[in-house]
């Protein structure tokens, strides 16, 4: 079985080194090399590689964000020179990674572990991702992928099997369940105020009473969003 691999690193020499270390791994076929996080996310979605060499520190999207946004959970080998926060998270969740500069032996060991996990799934990466709060989301705009900074998203609305991110007066759809998304967001900033709505507290203007003795939130844009009883409790809990 050939392993189809993607190399994501913004430095040409670093990518060349991974290719060189792969020379002895004849079962690996390199599908593509990319030099930024957004292209990495695109390639992961379009080419569906078995194995990704993923640098943490890349332009546009970090390696961790690439995983968050693509939902990729297996077949990842992180490479990094020095990212204290990421390394602490890796150690916490027992995720394997390659510290630059690394040796052929260390590289081979990581390959060995990764190819085993390819078949079994990687609970460590799953745990790591569960612990990261989402900061940006990847949405499709026509055939193009676009990155939305969540800070600038006003609210999120469930629409059947999709969620719609309201950003700069426009809705951006993404195929995801709202409860699944809610779990990935920072609970201090994003509150599920209603079965169908999550609001960004940074955009909050006021909490109002409705005529029927319920609640609603008014956002800076003037938009009013209904608040359920349990949603109101969650809101009070955070505020």
């Amino acid at each position: 079985m050939t392993i189809r691999a993607l190399i994501a690193d913004d430095e040409p020499l670093a990518r060349a080194l991974v290719r060189a270390f792969l020379a002895t791994h004849t079962d690996v076929q390199v599908l593509a090399e990319v030099d930024n996080g957004l292209d990495a996310a695109r390639c992961i979605q379009d080419l569906v590689p078995d194995l990704v060499f993923l640098d943490i520190h890349m332009p546009k999207l970090t390696g961790l964000e690439v995983l968050q946004l693509t939902g990729l959970r297996r077949g990842v080998i992180f490479t990094t020179a020095y990212d204290q926060h990421a390394l602490a998270a890796f150690d916490l969740h027992a995720v394997d990674y390659l510290l630059k500069p690394f040796s052929q032996e260390r590289f081979d060991a990581a390959m060995h572990r990764a190819s085993q996990l390819l078949r079994e799934g990687a609970p460590a990466v799953e745990r790591l991702m569960a612990a990261q709060a989402l900061k940006r989301v990847l949405v499709r705009e026509g055939s193009e992928l676009r990155v939305l900074p969540l800070d600038e998203v006003e609210y999120i609305e469930a629409q059947a099997d999709y969620v719609a991110f309201r950003h700069a007066g426009r809705d951006h759809l993404k195929a995801q369940r709202i409860s699944e998304l809610e779990a990935q967001l920072d609970p201090r900033q994003f509150v599920r105020v209603h079965r169908s709505f999550i609001v960004n507290l940074r955009q909050l203007q006021a909490v109002e009473r409705t005529e029927s003795n319920g609640h609603a939130v008014r956002l800076r844009s003037g938009k009013r969003i209904p608040v359920s009883r349990s949603g109101h409790e969650r809101l009070l809990g955070v505020l």
Binding site: A14, A81, K100, F102
Partner: peptide
């Protein structure tokens, strides 16, 4: 910057071959 140092060493490690 340690990031700079270690990445540079990685580049050197790569260049040694090519």
């Amino acid at each position: 910057d340690p990031h700079f140092l270690f990445n540079s060493l990685n580049s050197i490690s790569s260049l040694i071959q090519f």
